[in-house]
Simulated scan of single mutants.
Amino acid sequence: MSTETREVDLVGDEVVGNVARAALVAALTGAFAYVTFPNPVSPTSVTLQVLGVFLAGLLLGPVWGGVSMVLYLAAGAVGAPVFLGGSAGFGSLVGTTAGYLWSYPLAAFAVGFVAYGGLDTGADLDAGLPRLVGALTLGTVVIYALGVAGLMVVGGLGLEAAVVGGALTFIPAEALKAAVAVGVVRSGDIAAA
């Protein structure tokens, strides 16, 4: 009786690696939700979650960056304490911050698409500073457009109150997060030089 075995790859190594990286960035984004700073002009605290969104797009590209943020939302929806301050559950995805949360996959995709110049995730990120700034600016616009819409629909705020309290007061913090994200992705360029 002879037993012959064959090795079959059900999922390629590249896909496994991309899923692992996407899960890691999703977990990092969840950890960033615990880092909060008071916002002196808003009742809502500043968190580092958006830094995770930026890094997802810049490090993983548009497709896997978006997948990473979908994993993040799924983890929070099923009870992992990965939303603002360790909150969790489906209620966060329909509450006043829902617009921001739902924007994360779209924003990560947009950041990656602009930074990489398309859908090609196999290429190394070779974007200059203007392209990186443009990518992060677009990501910020996506996040705040949906976040403000969510505040208006779910929170019952008027347009002016939603824009001022839900977007404008956070712009300095977003600029700092964008600078950190650029520093992270450019640090590899510096180390290689």
Rank of each mutant, 00 (worst) to 15 (best):
P105S: 08
F113S: 00
A123K: 14
G86F: 11
A77Y: 07
P81T: 04
S42A: 12
N39Q: 15
Y34D: 05
G134Y: 01
F83G: 01
A161V: 13
A77D: 09
G147D: 04
A80G: 11
A33D: 00
W102H: 03
A31T: 09
L51R: 05
T137F: 14
G61D: 06
T140M: 07
T44Y: 11
A123E: 15
L48Q: 06
V46H: 08
A115L: 06
L48Y: 05
L146N: 06
S42T: 14
G52W: 01
V142H: 02
P105T: 00
P105I: 02
A162T: 12
S87C: 11
P105A: 05
L59S: 10
D120V: 09
G165W: 02
S42L: 05
L151V: 12
T44S: 15
V154R: 02
L24N: 13
S45T: 14
L59P: 07
V35Q: 10
I143R: 00
V25F: 11
P81S: 12
G76V: 00
F113H: 04
G166P: 13
V70F: 06
P130I: 08
L58T: 08
D126G: 03
A127W: 04
S42H: 07
T29N: 05
V82L: 11
R131P: 11
F32D: 02
L93S: 11
T121C: 14
E160S: 15
T96V: 15
Y100P: 05
T47E: 02
V67P: 01
G117Y: 10
I143M: 06
G95K: 04
G128C: 12
G86M: 10
G89K: 06
G156P: 05
S103H: 03
G76P: 04
V53Q: 01
G155W: 07
L125C: 08
A98G: 08
V133R: 05
D124W: 07
Y144G: 00
V63Y: 14
G155Y: 09
V63L: 15
A22C: 10
V94I: 13
Y116V: 07
V53D: 00
G128F: 11
L60C: 12
V154C: 05
L119V: 13
V111Q: 03
A108C: 03
A56G: 07
L84I: 13
L151H: 08
T29S: 07
G30V: 02
V63D: 08
G99V: 03
A108K: 01
G57L: 02
P38S: 13
V35G: 04
A27G: 15
V153E: 10
G61H: 09
G79K: 11
G65K: 06
G79N: 11
M152G: 10
